[in-house]
Simulated scan of single mutants.
Amino acid sequence: MDLNTIRKEREKWNEWKNIKPLREHLAALPNIQPSRVSFSDIITLEESTLQETEKKKIDALAWMLRPWRKGPFNVFGTFIDSEWQSQIKYNLLEPYLDLKDKCVADIGCNNGYYLFRMLEQHPKKLVGFDPSIHYKTQFDFINHFIKAPITYELLGIEHVPFYETRFDVIFCLGVLYHRSDPISALKALKKGLNPEGEVILDTFIIDGDAPMCLTPQDRYSKIPNIYFIPTVTALQHWCQRAGFRTFELLCIKKTDLEEQRKTKWIEGESLDNFLDPNNHELTIEGYPAPKRAYVKIRI
């Protein structure tokens, strides 16, 4: 697979009619060095000498870049209240992470919130994979000011085996249930690892001890392209069949309205609209409500 050819083709996505105006506004942003950057729960950029005209340009582009799914961010006093309170997931995983001097990838990285958080652990290299030019433009907006040494690739999980770098740690959060062949997806992650490498994985699960899966008829919690929702046992079997030696269950967590909710920074519906209004233990389609398993798997 020729990744450079794919990269060149996907660079043309910047010319799409809905993206080109955003890229033009991005190119016109003032070149401001923040006086302070914090990579805590709210990724915060501060600058006390920001001029009003500069602030208006920054705020206008932040608003144009909706919907903001992952975050939150505070950009020079403007709070981007994202749909997902992504600090909840990251803080859950952080005690299990050792990223210092390691090559790290985040598959399905969205706007890079987790990648920015990882900077505090001083990894050797950070690469985000996501085939969404909208999310990359959000990342470029934030990183225009931070200038972090993060590589953002408009590539997906299927490109990982052919990537020029092998990784010590790969994050794959909220991706596996979008793949029609989850075992092949896990094999792709395995091929992207260095010896002794590990994957931090989260995916929807259903309750039960049997190695079984839910296969939604059409949508699950109004989400398209959801193929298989396994029990933890079935997920472990998938990982074993993909060639992973160890499987460590870190946590099981139900998605709640604290973690995912509608704000003015998104367009459309959120979790409250995806659940049965009379019973939040069920999705609007009648399936078990979203619950995720967080696991660490090693080769």
Rank of each mutant, 00 (worst) to 15 (best):
M118K: 14
M118P: 15
M118N: 15
L119T: 13
E120I: 14
E120R: 15
Q121V: 04
Q121W: 02
H122G: 00
H122M: 11
H122V: 06
H122I: 02
P123S: 10
P123F: 03
P123D: 11
K124E: 14
K124A: 14
K124T: 04
K125W: 06
K125S: 12
K125L: 15
K125V: 12
L126G: 09
L126K: 02
L126C: 07
L126S: 07
L126Q: 06
L126T: 07
V127C: 10
V127Y: 01
V127K: 00
V127N: 05
V127W: 01
G128I: 01
F129A: 05
F129W: 02
F129Y: 07
D130L: 00
D130T: 05
D130I: 00
D130A: 01
P131V: 10
P131K: 11
S132T: 03
S132Q: 05
S132N: 05
S132E: 04
I133T: 10
I133G: 03
I133V: 15
I133C: 06
H134R: 13
H134G: 08
H134E: 12
H134M: 14
Y135W: 12
Y135P: 02
Y135E: 15
Y135V: 04
K136V: 01
K136S: 09
K136W: 12
K136E: 15
T137Y: 03
T137M: 09
T137S: 12
T137W: 01
T137Q: 08
Q138A: 09
Q138C: 12
F139L: 03
F139C: 02
F139I: 02
F139P: 03
F139E: 01
F139N: 04
D140T: 00
D140M: 01
F141T: 00
I142G: 03
I142H: 03
I142S: 02
I142E: 02
N143A: 05
N143D: 14
H144A: 08
H144N: 13
H144Q: 11
H144G: 08
H144V: 08
H144C: 08
F145K: 01
F145V: 02
F145M: 02
F145D: 03
F145R: 02
F145L: 00
I146N: 05
I146T: 07
I146R: 03
K147Q: 13
K147M: 01
K147S: 09
A148M: 07
A148K: 05
A148G: 05
P149V: 06
P149Y: 05
I150S: 09
I150P: 14
I150E: 11
I150F: 08
I150A: 10
I150T: 10
T151I: 13
T151R: 12
T151K: 12
Y152N: 09
Y152D: 08
E153F: 08
E153K: 15
E153S: 13
E153C: 13
E153D: 10
E153P: 10
E153H: 11
L154W: 07
L154C: 11
L154A: 11
L154E: 13
L155H: 07
L155G: 11
L155F: 14
L155S: 09
L155Y: 06
G156A: 08
G156Q: 06
G156S: 14
G156M: 08
G156K: 07
